[in-house]
């Protein structure tokens, strides 16, 4: 039963270096290469929504993947972020836009904290149902009280342009780069969090609450922190969704479907994995577009477009089921396994 010592550390070093290089390469492509070659369609219809949803996925993954608290209220926290940013921007015009975004995140964190309180008593499905309350309550409040939308009769507000100092990001590429910058910073901080003691506390609470309590993990505080941090990130994702992608702020953009979409993103991408949120968001955003192009080209002339769209949904649904049966741990695990196989190391 003697076990050989050493190789683990030596093995983990080059892997960390490879990971760092990969991230650097992706960032280089995203920041430098794509803006010079991509089309407006790519940025407006694919990359910007992808970034916003990926960020929301990162936020939800902290809460659900790492801390094990299931939430169906993600879209509500996105809405809180978007409306808070709009109102801070409107009512305190001298506030720099970045500060408005941070304040919007903090507002979402506050609301998330309140709706996280049931997690102190409820777990699993019961908690998920109680987070639905956030979804319905926030949407109701935003529609009911005109103050939030500045008494706009239609309830749909045009979002003001994105601005840092005197630079305005009002082109498709500009909005994309703005989103990319914010997503990069927040994702890096989230990644740091998962690697730190606080992230380990999240996992400990998820994996064994009793053992965590005995060791001295402040279980209640950890859960509430997870809700707050997660809602902060999701709130900022909401700002990006409304300001950079839709360019309107309206409650309908943040309905229950959106919450489910974000949950699917992290399940398909991989729970408790930062990378998973991006892979999942890529799948959810890009795949339907690809399918619709393919469907349009193959069947466009023959079959009614409504039928084409319906069959796409069926195909996507079937693929999700098949995929989850084949790889329940998500795309991130699939990638990890492929990398391991390429590296020639047996599992």
């Amino acid at each position: 039963m003697s076990i050989s010592v050493t190789p683990s550390i030596e093995r983990s070093l080059p892997r960390a270096a490879i990971g760092g290089l990969t991230v650097a390469a992706i960032l280089f492509i995203a920041f430098v290469v794509l803006p010079s070659v991509g089309s407006d369609y790519l940025f407006e219809a694919i990359l910007t929504p992808f970034l916003a949803l990926a960020l929301a996925g990162v936020g939800l993954n902290l809460l659900t993947g790492y801390a094990g608290q299931v939430s169906l209220g993600s879209a509500a926290f996105m809405a809180v972020g978007a409306f808070a940013a709009y109102n801070f921007n409107l009512r305190v015009p001298e506030l720099p836009f970045l500060v408005s975004i941070v304040l919007a995140g903090l507002t979402a964190a506050g609301i998330g904290l309140i709706f996280g309180l049931p997690s102190l008593r409820l777990r699993g499905f019961y908690l998920a149902v109680s987070t639905l309350a956030a979804q319905f309550f926030v949407q109701w409040a935003l529609t009911k009280f005109g103050w939030f939308s500045n008494d706009n009769p239609s309830g749909i507000i045009n979002a003001p342009p994105l601005k840092i100092a005197s630079v305005t990001f009002d082109t498709a590429v500009g909005r994309y780069l703005f989103s990319l910058g914010i997503v990069t910073v927040l994702t890096f901080l989230a990644w740091r969090l998962t690697r730190a003691q606080t992230g380990r506390n999240f996992i400990a609470v998820r994996d064994n609450q009793t053992a965590a309590r005995v060791i001295g993990v402040p279980v209640l505080r950890t859960k509430l922190l997870a809700f707050a941090v997660s809602s902060f990130i999701i709130g900022v994702a909401g700002v990006l969704w409304a300001f950079a992608y839709l360019r309107t702020v309206e409650p309908a953009g943040f309905n229950l479907d959106r919450s489910f979409q974000i949950l699917f993103i992290i399940i398909i991408g991989g729970l408790a994995s930062i990378r998973g949120a991006f892979l999942g968001a890529g799948f959810i955003v890009v795949f339907p577009l690809l399918l619709s192009r393919l469907g349009g080209e193959l069947l466009g002339g023959i079959v009614d477009s409504g039928v084409v769209e319906m069959s796409q949904r069926i195909v996507i649904g079937a693929l999700i089921i098949l995929f989850l049966i084949a790889e329940p741990k998500g795309l991130a695990e699939l990638g990890r396994r492929a990398a391991r196989r390429l590296g020639g190391r047996p599992t």
Binding site: R200, I203, A204, N208, A211, I215, A272
Partner: peptide, 18 residues
Amino acid sequence: ALFGGLTVLENVVMGLTS
């Protein structure tokens, strides 16, 4: 009652939480 998602070393580090 280990934390299955953490490595062995991380589990042990968790013992120092207090």
